[in-house]
Design a protein around this nucleic acid. Structure first.
Lengths: 251, 251
DNA sequence: AAACCAATGTTCGCTTCCGTACAGAAGTGT
DNA sequence: ACACTTCTGTACGGAAGCGAACATTGGTTT
C-alpha cells in the first residue's frame, strides 16, 4: 500500500510536471480516519485537501440535528473549494465517510497558486463545476426519486471512489448521509440483497452486481458521472487549455 | 422605469470605475420575457447575463418531464457561471421566472475579463459560492422540510429579488419550480392566504406580511440570505481584496 | 462461557404528498 | 352576452416514508 503518492489524486495527476513540482514541497500527507471532520460549518479553512484514498462527505446539519449529504469527494477532487472561491468557509461540514489518506496544502499556498491563473486554476474550477452538478442532482434526487433509487446512486457514487467494491459503513451512517431513517435503509438494502445485487453484514457492504445496480439507479448517477468525464477526463498528461489570455504573459 | 442601467446589477455595481468602464462597451441590454429560456441543458453558452430586474430560475428537468428548481438568480448575480468555471454548459436549464431585463456579454469578453484575475474574477467566484450555498440548501429543504415551508422559502427568495412584494406567477408554475403537484401548492398557498400572510388570484401573488412569512419559513432561507450578505455585501464601492499575488503584476 | 453492545430486522399507526378526477371561478375573445 | 380557456378549489384512495417500540443477531469484552 505504498500507493500514497500525490499523483493518485486525479487533480494533482493532471498537472504538468512543472506545476506539480512547484506544489510538491507544500503537500503534506495525512491520514483521514473514519468520522474525522475536515472542517465545520462556518469554520475558516486552514488547508485544502487532495485525497488519494477514502471518501469525504459534504453534509449539512439542520438546527434539529438532521443531516443530509450535499456531495462527496474522493481522489478525483479536492476538499475546500471555499478557499479559492473566496468565502473561506461554507455552510456545510466535511466528514470522512471512508477512511483514507490525503495530501493537504496550506491555505496561503493554495491561494497563491490559484491566483497564478494557470492550469491549477483551470482544474480547480472545472472540479468545482462537477461538484455543483453533483449538488444539483442530489437536490433533484431528493425531490423525485425513491429511497431505493437513492441508495443505488449513493452506493455507485461511493464505490466509484474506492479501490474495491466493498464499503465499511453501517446502515445507520448511510441513513445519516441520505437524510432518511435507518429503518428505511435497512428495508431498501434488504431488497437489494434479496435480489443478489449486494451483500452486507454489520458495517460491511459489498457490491456484487454492479451492472444490475446501474439498472436500478435513477438517471442522477449517470448525469453526475457523465458530467465528470466531460469536465475532467482522467489522464496524467496535462489537459490545460492553451489558455490564450492568461498564460501567454506568464509561461 | 429608466432604471435599466447596468449598475442596477449588484455585481456590476460592485466593480471599481476602471473595470466597469472597460466592460461597459461590451454590455448589451436585452429584455427577458416570461418563460424565455436563456440556455438549455448541455447547450454551450454564447453569453453571460447580468440581470437588472426579473428573476431567472435554474432548473433541472428529469427524463420523464418532472422538474425541480436548483437555484434562482436576480439582479444580485449573473447567469452563466459555466463560462468561467470552464464547462461551457451545464446539466440544467435557465428560464425566466419573472420578466425583466438583463445586460449580456459575449462569452469571449467574459473569459478575457475573468482571466485577468482581478476584481471581476473575485466577484464572480464569490457569487458562485453563494449559488452553491443556495443549491445545497435547496437539496436539504427538499429532503427535510414540508411543502408549506418550502413555499415560504420560495416566496421570500423571490420577492427579495423584486422591487415590490408582488409576483406574477401561477400556482402551476410554482409547482413546477418546487417539483411538486399543483394541488399541493394550492393547499399550501390557501393556508397562507387564510392566515392573511399572502393574497393571490389568477397568477398574481402578493406578500402581505413578510415578517410572518419569515416566522413560518424553515432555516434554509436565512442560511442562504446570510451567506449572501457575508460573501457579497451590497455596496457600490468596490470590495475587491487588495489581492496580493495577482494584481501586483498587472495594475 | 457469559455478558454486553452495536448492527440489523420487523411491526404499527400516522403524516405528507401523490395521482386522479372533477367542479367552480375569473378572465378573454368574438 | 356568449362560449371558451385558464386558474383555482376540493375530494378520495394509495404509496412512501416517519417516529416509536421492540426483537434478533453477531461480534467483542471480560
Amino acid at each position: 500500500m505504498a500507493s500514497r503518492e500525490p499523483r493518485k489524486n486525479h487533480l494533482l495527476a493532471a498537472l504538468a510536471e512543472k506545476s506539480y513540482q512547484r506544489l510538491l514541497p507544500d503537500l503534506e500527507l495525512i491520514a483521514m480516519p473514519l468520522g474525522w471532520v475536515l472542517y465545520e460549518s462556518g469554520m475558516p479553512l486552514k488547508y485544502v485537501y487532495f485525497p488519494v484514498s477514502g471518501i469525504i462527505s459534504l453534509l449539512y446539519v439542520t438546527n434539529n440535528g438532521a443531516s443530509s449529504e450535499i456531495a462527496i469527494t474522493g481522489n478525483e477532487g479536492l476538499v475546500g473549494i471555499s478557499l479559492f472561491m473566496g468565502g473561506e468557509s461554507t455552510t456545510n461540514r466535511a466528514v470522512v465517510q471512508c477512511a483514507g489518506h490525503a495530501y493537504r496544502m496550506a491555505a496561503g499556498v493554495l491561494k497563491r497558486e490559484f491566483a497564478l491563473g494557470g492550469e491549477f486554476q483551470y482544474l480547480a474550477l472545472r472540479y468545482t463545476q462537477t461538484l455543483i452538478t453533483q449538488m444539483a442532482q442530489t437536490s433533484v434526487c431528493n425531490r423525485h426519486h425513491t429511497l431505493d433509487q437513492q441508495l443505488c446512486r449513493w452506493l455507485l457514487l461511493s464505490i466509484d471512489r474506492l479501490e474495491g467494491a466493498e464499503l465499511i459503513m453501517t446502515q445507520e451512517l448511510i441513513a445519516n448521509m441520505l437524510g432518511v431513517r435507518r429503518e428505511g435503509v435497512t428495508e431498501a438494502a434488504g431488497r437489494l440483497q434479496q435480489a443478489g445485487l449486494i451483500s452486507y453484514s454489520r458495517g460491511r457492504i459489498s457490491v456484487l452486481k454492479r451492472a444490475a445496480l446501474e439498472k436500478r439507479v435513477c438517471e442522477c448517477y449517470a448525469v453526475v458521472k457523465q458530467e465528470f468525464e466531460r469536465l475532467l477526463p482522467y489522464q496524467r498528461a496535462p489537459l490545460h487549455p492553451n489558455a490564450s489570455a492568461q498564460t501567454g504573459t506568464r509561461s
